[in-house]
Nucleic acid binder design. Structure first.
Lengths: 101, 101
DNA sequence: CGTGTAAGGAATTCTGACACG
DNA sequence: CGTGTAAGGAATTCTGACACG
């Protein structure tokens, strides 16, 4: 996708301003596999607005005392649920279209 | 507005990558009043995706040989046209609603 | 007019590590 | 486990200016 929301153009300092999370925290959540910024040629991290939103959600979870490992698991399982639902919907559409059984 | 498109979060180096314009050119177009980035506390420029699009349009005009002053005038007059049209539409809606004459 | 460049300073970002707990 | 911090280096950004044309 090339929407503004997904485009990785925001530097870590700006993400800090946008989320209130420390630069250290932002890097740590990446280390733990919760977030995946891109890197510029020089190695500088670049985030999207989507990443910022995700970080905001992570911050909420952390305030509730949820550990990064749990947050990651939740993210994965909700992604799996979403994928399965999408697959079911696609299959439904497909079958309806071709009248298969 | 607080949409992603209007939010000023992109640094000048990233704008350079996105537009292909040199940092010097980007600053110069600001100096001439064609573009208005925000400034961080420290004074660093921050651009929106809208600004990037505008810069791309400016770059096209410049390649056609149009001077910055002309580009600025065109931008202003098209903004005025747009404003007048909006006003006419609003007045139409208003009159239709209240059956005035 | 529009753009390149060297100049000097200030702030940013990066990584690996020590610290606390 | 999660986060702060000092460390040293490399790249970024800023402004005002000279250059060419």
């Amino acid at each position: 996708m090339s929407s503004y929301k997904e485009k990785k153009v925001i530097s870590i300092g700006t993400v800090n301003e946008l989320t209130g999370l420390s630069v250290r925290q932002i890097r740590y959540y990446e280390e733990k596999g919760l977030i995946y910024p891109e890197r510029t040629t020089r190695g500088t991290r670049r985030y999207s607005f989507s990443d910022v939103e995700l970080l905001l959600q992570i911050a909420d979870k952390r305030e509730e005392g949820v550990q990064t490992y749990e947050i990651k698991k939740d993210m994965q399982s909700s992604k799996e649920k979403k994928d399965k639902m999408m697959e079911r919907m696609l299959r439904g559409q497909f079958n309806a279209h071709f009248k298969m059984r």
